[in-house]
């Protein structure tokens, strides 16, 4: 084997993380073929630091750093990627699993107390409740 080829080494810790994501999402992330349909479909992709397909790749490889991404929080669970994935994967569930791993460690993404009062006064209940469900 050539020396300049970097071999991806999967440790037991990587495996453990992938298994956790699979279990919470009910999806088998290693089924992803990296075709990029999700990234091309995602309405939030332009705002994201990593694309949805990178998020899937990192989950396959058990790279916990994926949970430091802004992408998983920018997912609006609109299910566009879910309905288009040629492998039948539900990516909205994968993003939810990643968020849940963080949230269950009591690490919240949004502090409603920091939302300006004038915004809180106009935001409809549907926005505030869904935001709390997804981010706290």
């Amino acid at each position: 084997m050539q020396d300049n080829i970097k071999k991806i080494q999967l440790t037991e810790k990587n495996d453990e993380f992938t298994r956790l994501v699979n279990e919470l999402s009910g999806q088998i992330v290693t089924v992803c073929d990296q075709c990029g349909t999700c990234s091309g479909s995602c309405p939030m992709a332009l705002e994201m630091d990593i694309t949805p397909s990178t998020l899937m790749r990192m989950s396959q490889l058990g790279q916990r750093e994926v949970m430091e991404s802004r992408a998983m929080w920018l997912c609006a669970a609109c299910f566009t990627c879910t309905s288009r994935c040629p492998r039948g994967l539900d990516l909205a569930k994968v993003a939810e699993a990643l968020r849940q791993i963080k949230l269950r460690d009591a690490i919240r993404h949004v502090d409603l107390k920091k939302i300006p009062k004038e915004d809180l006064a106009t935001l409809p209940p549907i926005a505030l409740i869904s935001c709390s469900q997804k981010f706290t």
Binding site: P43, M44, A76, T80, V110, A127, C131
Partner: peptide, 20 residues
């Protein structure tokens, strides 16, 4: 017509939603 409006991102990311 079927593109997401940004949904609950309107709370923490109101200018991203405004762009959509």
């Amino acid at each position: 017509a079927t593109r997401c409006c940004g949904s609950y991102q309107t709370v923490p990311e109101k200018y991203s939603v405004a762009e959509m």
